[in-house]
Design a binder for these strands. Structure first.
Lengths: 341, 341
DNA sequence: TACCCATGAACAAACGTTTGCGCGAATCGA
DNA sequence: TCGATTCGCGCAAACGTTTGTTCATGGGTA
């Protein structure tokens, strides 16, 4: 039963029912008597204004798109959950899309989402530079908030970790523990997040008070790739005394290979990992991590989006909002003593 | 620009443009000349039929709801990803909802989804019995496919692991390795999945050729709970020589506490865990797991749903579709030798 | 020439809302 | 008692499609 049928049933006009059911009873001066009658009948017959009709009339779908590279990645899963929760409070639904870290899929999904005339969208891009992607985003008719990674050449508001500062913090932490040869396992060289983190690491090493050396390995997010790159990094001669991993998979790769090679952590190798995982503090030794304030970032992004929606779907100013990483110092990072090597 | 503006621009009727753009040109015998002219203009002006209008007219939103207890749980994340991928091929979008393992939130979300007049929905219930939940599902106007867990008292089609058989397989595996005292760390006693698994375990123990003993601990999915329950299980006297964990958190709990107590795996304790995780084969020793054929289940569930959608949104017959678990036997399970205890 | 039929496209109703406007009735001040 | 205001609600248009029906045109046959 829809509201016009309910109106007929009650002998009232559709407009009256609509006004009451959409909470505008007093605004249009519907008498309490009539309003209550409508409300009662509505709950009795389980009548709710059809969102399709509402959307069409209002020109809003009440839905935003969330496009992530990999919902299977705990970081994005947490992000998605927080975003959905926040938007729910504003009665906005979330359409989920997973681009599987593939730029082409991402492009298709993006076009699809734009066609669907959603109210807005939160996008965590795969991170590969693409002219067509940039053009597609540039001319978007809806507000778009970028998360985690940015798209070069596009002026869009973004919410992310201060990757540069985080990388610097991580490297400095290891340097301060006495390590002078750092290893770094990166993810994709394409990703702006990785680029930022690595740049931070490099600057920390460059600015360190005494000479320090940095070995960088890795490319890609797959587990197989991470394993072989971890192997490569651990086989360096001389081997780094401390390793920083920029991705979750990379961390698993190092943990696994170090175990195979019987390298003791932290006695022979210190390990600091990006992204806190559920098991980080449970493995042995507990893993020191650089964690992201996921909740805060999700909150900020949704606030930005909601604000844009209320201001008539206009794009908010292209500010870059950065958050500081949090260092969880645990036993996997130890002070370097020369006799171990 | 919408199709009516495009029609006006071309000096044609809206209906003609609509027929061409929705791919029904020849069905309504639009001349190739006209059709091509429309198509060209459409790509030029980036005109696509507005899904809102289409939805309203057709009475379909082209969108289904996916309600999971915790998208942060890798199992559900994988499920969500596979489901979204499959439905995308049929041009169906997915609205994501996360109930945070909370029955009340689940109930609210469910009502919300039902109101949104989606085309259908895939539901992985929290698993707590609830009269109102059952009633809500029973009278649903859209097809609903249950996943992973079932809701007692409701005749809905479901796709899930054969939890009972999986539990039996797991327990039998441990018994066959010579263990006669099994420990089991469960999740929530409310969950039909856990109930099934545990029942399978109990039957395996009961039917085993020689006397065997089973100690069951655990309740809830939180990490803290899992840690304390793991502690309790490992502190039993006598301690089980093999432990089966029914949840991911439980596995982490056992791994952590075993490490604290300096219990060597598998020499002093065999461990078999439900649900394959990205790190399962990477920890030391590699973890034996009972894995679920997530892809297959997701495929089947979406097939069921799509079929129902094509048959006019009617509920498919309430069949229960079960899949067999797959045993990944790894080094964390060892043959029991009496001298170790 | 008159008729029929196939062709190609327009007309209009319907999907379910929201909302500016208007209208009759009741209330009020003078 | 009368004009002016307020109150309570209905009317109708509009949002953007889809689709059954109609209509004009032209070619073919009788």
């Amino acid at each position: 039963m829809n509201i016009s049928q309910l109106a007929e049933h009650l002998g009232l006009a559709v407009s009256t029912v609509s006004r009451v059911l959409s909470g505008n009873a007093e605004k249009y001066r519907i008498s309490n008597q009539t309003a209550d009658r409508i409300r009662e009948a509505a709950v009795l017959h389980q009548v709710v204004p059809d969102p399709l009709g509402t959307s069409l009339r209002k020109g809003k779908s009440g839905m935003i798109g969330l496009l992530v590279p990999d919902i299977t990645n705990p970081f994005f899963a947490h992000l998605a959950r927080a975003i959905e929760l926040h938007l729910r409070k504003s009665r906005i639904a979330v359409q989920l899309c997973d681009s599987a870290e593939d730029p082409e899929t991402e492009m298709e999904l993006l076009e699809n989402l734009l066609q669907r005339r959603l109210d807005g969208m939160i996008l965590a891009p795969v991170g590969v530079e693409s002219e067509s992607l940039a053009r597609c985003l540039e001319g978007s008719p809806m507000p778009i908030i970028l998360m985690d990674r940015i798209v070069s050449g596009v002026a869009l508001p973004s919410v992310s970790l201060d990757h540069f500062a985080a990388g610097k913090l991580a490297a400095t932490t290891l340097l301060q523990s006495g390590h002078s040869h750092l290893g770094c396992l990166r993810g994709s060289p394409q990703s702006s997040a990785d680029q930022g983190r690595l740049a931070g690491v490099e600057e920390a090493v460059r600015e360190w008070k005494s000479p320090a050396h940095l070995t960088v390995k890795g490319s890609g997010y797959s587990l197989e790739k991470s394993l072989s790159e971890a192997q490569a990094l651990l086989s360096c001669n001389p081997r780094p005394t401390a390793i920083l991993t920029l991705t979750g998979q990379g961390t698993l790769g190092i943990l696994n290979r170090a175990n195979d090679l019987q390298i003791r952590i932290p006695e022979e190798l210190s390990l600091l990992a990006f992204d806190e995982q559920p098991w980080s503090r449970l493995v042995s030794p507990p893993l020191a991590t650089i964690s992201q304030p996921i909740e805060k970032m999700a909150t900020r992004a949704t606030e930005l989006l909601i604000e844009a929606l209320e201001k008539g779907k206009k794009q908010p100013p292209p500010q870059q909002i950065l958050y500081d990483a949090e260092l969880q110092l645990r036993k996997s990072v130890a002070h370097f003593s020369a006799d171990a090597d």
